[in-house]
Design a protein around this nucleic acid. Structure first.
Lengths: 345, 345
DNA sequence: CTGAAAGCGCTAACAA
DNA sequence: TTGTTAGCGCTTTCAG
């Protein structure tokens, strides 16, 4: 670990500046109520010694860490094959940085990891947590609630448990889906199919609901279940084509799925959008611009979601009880989506 | 912050188990040299009280944190638009988790952030750092070296400074590029162009060098500079087409660039691979499979890179001086690449 | 094998 | 405004 030249302590700085530790501490933490002359002297000593406060010691007494955990449940590779996560992370990072907080990333891959994460959170390493709760049956939310750490969820939590005081940030999946399907209908399409996402995730469920909102009595055969992957999209598209050869539009649960559907459509000799109009969801770049034809899709501001999650959590620290929703309903913030028109619909 | 029901301390556990704090500490940390009966009693007390050690207190005395920082210099959005980073992160996370270390993510966006990161690292929050040094002129490596934190770099560091004791992990960019160009030559192509990446990154430089290794006296007009983006690829491709209309192959510095080139080629009416063969680099999915035609490319095992970085760092902790290379040369580990044949070449 | 005691470096009352 | 004095919760000699 390099020559561990022991870092100077408060004590050392105090000695050098000819003041008490308390005074140095005050200066280091803002310097209010200390005479300018002393502030100056302490600053100089700090500088000369290259003093940097020891966080562990500080946390031990303040019980604050200026660090928050980002927990990503990631049973599948998928999460990483898409920029969605990276963008949220970026938004989160920006916001945290602006408030001098560190980001501790907790990635979970399986059962064992849950326990580890629970322990970590309970261990009081962080002041709060941002959690992406991807699946309906995820045990994480429960663990976290038990750990008693202030938390904001990314995406509407779908687990069946105590929902009191849950705060989350989500995109308007349902509304976005409605817009997409309405757009398709506005194009004169009547046999509009839907390829769903993985239905153990609320985003997929919400998008399906949005589809149904518009297609009130849609032929159920127009709905095919997939899993947010290109391969799933291909499979579902084939299924749909076999079942309803007369379909003239497809709303896919995300862009990845849409790209798979597009491929099958091409193979089947259907022209897009002439024969079949296609809409995706996410506006995942560069993919959405890259497909043939470029994909019309529903954009969500992913980075802003991340940012907002962090802001909500941090704001809570000031207030005392961050995550208290009103009554029993989870209090969520839902961000709008926008339809991005390209060539596919 | 939820009702801060004060977490039980060692003291509490000791009282409950009828032993001293020291004994509890021993049990919690492995339990060697403690009678089984007592171990059992302490374990029970821990369980009943839901005791979790306070890391801050522990770190204060041990000076270890079981946490490592991952520093990502990210002046551009690009880093986040590509799964490269996410995959490395994943590899890193897996390895760290396996060794009970936490991952603290430090994202830097600009000048100000550098100071912050330097302070953080110097503050002794982490036991080591994994750094992605993306640009030749990055001040980060210097800062980090000064902070005296054991570090492993991702990608060959290209900065001009003290290189002693630098450890890094990289892909065989040069060798991979050679394979790509040789493959093109083996296809009978003779006018093989290269679209470079951002030449302030060593990966781009190395790939260019690989190209030159094979095309020893290539027409310099066959080389166009770009920046790893699709837009850059488009621009460069147009340039090349104007300059050398007779080109019959293109080796692009990465898949994103290749996808832009592909688009321009299509617009220009050149068939791929019949008229012009195209090879990318990265094997970025789903993009590489998704292009038209699917992209032949050079795959690098990105996740393994991350894993290896973490392993190297952690191993160093055991040994004492992790980052000491031999003599003045940086000691790097270079991972092999493989050519993935699809339809574009 | 176990306990007592001495801090790790810092902050926060409380006095002065 | 500044210094003194207790700890924060834990590990770790050192005795026993």
């Amino acid at each position: 670990m390099t020559d561990t030249a022991p870092r100077p302590t408060l004590e050392a700085v105090a000695a050098r500046a000819g003041v008490s530790r308390a005074t140095v501490s005050r200066v280091v933490n803002g310097g209010d109520g200390v005479r300018d002359i002393l502030v100056e002297r302490v600053r100089k000593a700090v500088e000369e010694l290259g003093y940097v406060p020891n966080q562990a010691a500080r946390s031990l007494v303040t019980r604050r860490h200026d660090a928050i955990a980002v927990v990503v449940a990631e049973p599948e590779t998928r999460v990483f094959a898409d920029p969605f996560f990276a963008l949220q992370l970026r938004g989160i990072s920006k916001e945290l940085t602006a408030h001098d907080n560190q980001l501790v990333l907790l990635l979970t891959e399986g059962r064992d990891d849950h326990a580890r994460v629970g322990r970590y959170l309970a261990g009081g390493h962080v002041d709060g947590a941002l959690v992406f709760s991807l699946h309906l049956d995820d045990p994480l939310p429960g663990l976290i609630q038990r750990a008693g750490v202030p938390t904001v969820f990314g995406g509407r939590p779908g687990w069946s448990g105590d929902r009191r005081g849950v705060v989350y940030v989500d995109s308007d999946n349902r509304g976005g889906a409605r817009d997409a399907v309405r757009h398709l209908a506005g194009l004169g399409r009547t046999r509009i199919a839907h390829i769903t996402g993985a239905l153990d995730q609320t985003s997929a469920v919400d998008r399906l609901d949005g589809y149904r909102d518009v297609m009130v009595d849609a032929d159920p055969r127009l709905i095919a279940e997939a899993d947010f992957t290109p391969a799933g999209g291909e499979r579902a598209m084939r299924e749909l084509l076999g079942r309803c050869p007369d379909l003239d539009a497809v709303f896919a649960a995300n862009d990845l799925t849409a790209s798979g559907a597009l491929r099958v459509l091409r193979e089947a000799g259907r022209r897009v959008p002439d024969d079949v109009a296609v809409i995706g969801f996410d506006d995942m770049l560069p993919l959405a611009e890259q497909t043939d034809p470029p994909l019309t899709t529903v954009r969500q501001d992913i980075e802003e979601m991340g940012r907002l999650m962090a802001r909500l959590l941090l704001r809570g620290f000031d207030r005392g009880t961050p995550q208290e929703g009103v009554g029993d309903t989870p209090s969520g913030v839902v961000l709008p989506t926008t339809l991005v028109r390209r060539a596919s619909a």
